[in-house]
Simulated assay, not measured.
Amino acid sequence: MTSQAQAPVIVVTGPTASGKSALALELAERRGGTVINADAMQTYDAFPVLTAQPTGEERARVPHTLYGVLPIGETVSAARWRTLASAEIERVLADGRVPILCGGSGLYLRTLMQGIAPIPEAPPELREQANADWAALGSRAFRERLAVHDPAIVDRLKPEDRQRHVRAWEVWQATGRPLSEWQRGEASAAPWRFVTVLLAPDRAWLRERIERRFDVMLSQGVEAEARAVFDKHPDPAWPGLKAHGAPEFFRHFRGELSFPDVRRIGIDHTRQYAKRQMTWFRHQMAPDLVFDPRADQALGEIEKYLDNLAG
């Protein structure tokens, strides 16, 4: 691990539709790299078009990993992704290639770089029961029950965040200790040197780009992709169904939304998500390099920084 710890791991991050994948691809071609997914929704296999996963042509140009590796019914937490990503980084370094993490899931990246307190995994049956309780009790009653045992975690969670409430309850059930106490445990940081590149686009430019990308997805058959998932009657609680646009398409298939409304709401929700991402990056991340995605000098500046780092 000593030699690996000295090797830089490149992180390309930023809001959705900011051009992360294209930049990571070019860097991988220039530096002999492998692109490792750092986007929660791209981890799932159900929506390759809707989540803008790399195309076959892009995968042929450089190796890509951790894209579409989980079924939509499985839960991918920051801790689980950290385990998966760490294994991929070690494998890529052992192959003599440069790991390039690419994605906008800031919490996942922070968890990888700074570490996370060890929290035991709960048995699957506890999660199933907790999800059933959420559906039966409703969010308010579920929160009130959880607050009896872990008021600190309830104060931090949004009322509609089913997944994190369920996680907190299952940890309490499995261990008899509140999740908030587990989270205060000592975290171990990753052993590698990270070089973080943040794409910080102009807001108006990004809004237009999000709209154009949604229309491109429509032309690439994203409606049929969503329909294929819908026809399998998935459980609405499955985490992979949170992909932006999927709930709107499902409502359209049930006759609740017109197609123009699917497009409008899908674009609006994606724009809101991008805004939240940028707020998170501004307050939670200290990047080594920051670029406007339109900057022609970004690649050259990144390579210069990496070369100086190598001495």
Results as ranks from 00 to 15, higher is better:
27 L>F: 15
250 F>M: 06
88 E>R: 09
114 Q>N: 13
68 G>A: 12
127 R>H: 13
238 W>V: 03
290 V>G: 01
139 S>Q: 08
76 V>R: 04
67 Y>K: 00
132 A>K: 15
59 R>W: 14
131 N>S: 05
173 Q>V: 13
33 G>L: 02
241 L>H: 06
74 E>V: 03
101 L>C: 06
27 L>V: 05
163 Q>T: 07
80 R>F: 03
165 H>L: 09
126 L>I: 15
302 I>R: 01
143 R>D: 14
47 F>R: 01
79 A>S: 07
196 T>K: 11
194 F>P: 04
165 H>E: 05
240 G>A: 06
55 T>G: 02
199 L>A: 04
253 F>N: 05
189 A>C: 09
207 R>E: 15
68 G>K: 12
267 I>Q: 00
116 I>F: 14
140 R>H: 14
21 S>M: 08
3 S>P: 07
135 A>F: 12
210 I>M: 00
83 T>R: 13
202 D>H: 07
200 A>C: 10
85 A>M: 09
88 E>H: 10
15 P>H: 03
137 L>E: 06
115 G>Q: 02
95 D>A: 08
189 A>K: 04
39 D>E: 09
177 R>A: 09
8 P>Q: 01
63 P>E: 11
151 P>V: 13
256 E>P: 05
307 D>F: 11
228 A>D: 08
191 P>L: 04
77 S>P: 03
124 P>D: 14
155 D>W: 07
106 G>M: 10
54 P>W: 02
237 A>Q: 07
234 P>C: 01
169 W>D: 12
215 D>L: 14
258 S>G: 13
7 A>H: 07
136 A>Q: 12
190 A>G: 08
118 P>H: 05
188 S>D: 10
241 L>D: 01
60 A>F: 15
71 P>T: 02
176 G>A: 12
130 A>G: 03
159 P>G: 09
204 A>P: 02
166 V>W: 03
274 A>M: 11
132 A>Q: 15
211 E>D: 06
72 I>S: 08
179 L>H: 05
44 Y>M: 03
265 I>K: 03
66 L>I: 06
184 R>E: 02
148 V>G: 12
243 A>G: 01
292 D>W: 00
274 A>Q: 03
107 L>K: 11
59 R>I: 10
39 D>T: 06
13 T>E: 01
123 P>S: 09
68 G>T: 10
203 R>Y: 08
2 T>W: 11
100 I>W: 05
41 M>Y: 07
242 K>Y: 13
256 E>I: 03
308 N>P: 03
206 L>D: 03
171 V>N: 04
286 A>T: 07
